[in-house]
């Protein structure tokens, strides 16, 4: 049986969540592995949310916000972008592969793009195998 990764998607309300809704309204089909959690702004995403997801058994985490300059709250997404490199450093120390966490910009009109990102990331994480919490050494 193929490995079906569990990916948590943390999406901002105004651009990305709306973009994901648009994919639905347009009946754009994509893989069912990403489960979406809504926050008002990607700037609300705390690094601990991502660690929590891995602790609870996620194989990947996708964070989506508005494109730079389009943030509903002016520049919350820039703060997210600034926090990401720090977080990635920390993830490495926890033994979480870089490819398991992605930050993407998806606008409210980019339903197609959201679907493409989900498919791409699902395949990427599928290749990495299940997250084992031991640095990925045993791959599950």
């Amino acid at each position: 049986m193929t490995f079906e990764p569990k990916i948590v998607g943390i999406l901002c309300n105004w651009c990305s969540y709306t973009g994901a809704d648009l994919a639905g309204t347009a009946r754009k089909k994509y893989l069912p592995n990403v489960r979406i959690v809504r926050v008002m702004c990607s700037g609300r995403v705390e690094p601990t949310f991502i660690l929590k997801a891995f602790e609870q058994g996620a194989d990947g985490v996708l964070v989506c916000g508005c494109h730079p300059g389009d943030c509903h709250y002016q520049d919350g997404n820039k703060k997210t972008a600034r926090r990401m490199p720090l977080l990635k450093k920390m993830l490495a120390q926890f033994g979480i592969e870089d490819e398991r966490v992605r930050l993407e910009w998806v606008s409210a009109s980019e339903g197609d793009r959201f679907a493409a990102i989900v498919n791409e990331m699902t395949e990427q994480v599928r290749k990495l195998g299940p997250f084992s919490g031991n640095g990925g050494a045993a791959n599950g």
């Binding site: 079906e4 994901a20 809704d21 994919a23 639905g24 009946r27 089909k29 069912p32 979406i36």
Partner: peptide, 21 residues
């Protein structure tokens, strides 16, 4: 709906996702 039944074709997996949500 928008983020599950409208975007997936596999009924079992869509049902599992709906449960998770």
């Amino acid at each position: 709906r928008e983020q599950c039944s409208w975007v997936h074709l596999d009924k079992d997996m869509a049902t599992e996702k709906a449960k998770a949500l």
